[in-house]
């Protein structure tokens, strides 16, 4: 038996909007600690990890660990039927092959039940090691989204370099090049508008903008985004979900042309 009641139902809607383009099908894992998801995109270049802790739910009941395979497109279709202020309750019975989303309007005068079929998904759960990152950039999420969008109109890849001076996003395309430099900036009125750069050593990595752009669909979830970079690791783009958890996107870097140290082919 599973019953999760989320007062701020719009959160779930936003989460789905954030990941549904990246991942088609995924297993939602429910345990006593929370509601989580880990999935790779079909080309195995990016990985999304979602956690909604049980404390964030008004009511959280999960008798035994449950993994529910859902088509995220379909789930998003159903969640779109929920109003932004609705309370969303996720229900599933043990052994059942369906999940029920219940939407209650804030005034309790409308209650909708949507039952969705589950599917068997073989997910490859990856162990993500804790890592020290060379550089961590925290910046307004809208700014990041804007940068990715702008750069993608010029090139396919973005080089993110963090130095003492700041963080530089640059791209190059047929029509020319673009560089956007953000400097550390903590003197703004609102803390969420600040750009904070923690750097242990300079790092410069290349990523496909296509993926970055799809990560920025999580922008409505959080005012700030944290980008963690290490030269030998995938970048982590993290959006905190207020008081509940996070959504993290991992993206494997592109192997730069001057170090064609590609993956071994055995």
């Amino acid at each position: 038996m599973l019953e999760l009641r989320l007062v701020q139902g719009s959160l779930l809607k936003k989460v789905l909007e954030a990941i549904k383009d990246l991942v088609n099908d995924a297993n939602f894992d429910c345990s006593a600690t929370g509601f989580s998801l880990q999935a790779m995109d079909s080309s195995h270049v990016a990985l999304v990890a979602l956690l909604l802790r049980s404390e964030g739910f008004e009511h959280y009941r999960c008798d035994r660990n449950l993994s529910m395979g859902m088509n995220l497109g379909n789930m998003s279709k159903m969640l779109r039927c929920a109003g932004n202020d609705d309370i969303i309750t996720i229900k599933a019975d043990d052994g059942s092959d369906t999940v029920t989303f219940m939407f209650e309007s804030p005034t309790q005068d409308k209650i909708a039940d949507f039952e969705m079929k589950l599917m068997d998904i073989d997910s490859e759960h990856l162990g993500i090691p804790e890592a020290e990152y060379h550089a961590i950039v925290r910046m307004p999420s809208a700014e990041f989204a804007r940068i990715c969008k702008d750069l993608s109109s010029i090139g396919d890849t973005v080089v993110i370099s963090v130095t003492k001076e700041g963080v530089k996003f640059s791209t190059r395309g047929d029509i020319g090049t673009a560089n956007i430099v953000l400097r550390q900036n903590t003197t703004v009125d609102k803390p969420e508008d600040s750009t904070i750069i923690e750097m242990n050593e300079p790092v410069s990595l290349t990523f496909a903008l296509r993926y970055m752009n799809s990560f920025t669909r999580a922008t409505p979830l959080s005012n700030t985004v944290t980008i963690s970079l290490s030269s030998e690791l995938p970048v982590v783009v993290e959006y905190k979900i207020a008081e509940m958890g996070y959504i993290r996107f991992y993206l494997a870097p592109k192997i730069e042309e001057d170090e064609e140290e590609t993956k071994p082919q055995i």
């Binding site: 990856l126 496909a208 993206l251 494997a252 192997i255 993956k263």
Partner: peptide
């Protein structure tokens, strides 16, 4: 894209 890294080369399956 041969230059695009694979996430699986960074994270092991459990």
């Amino acid at each position: 894209d041969p230059k695009q890294g694979n996430i699986l080369s960074f994270f092991k399956k459990v």
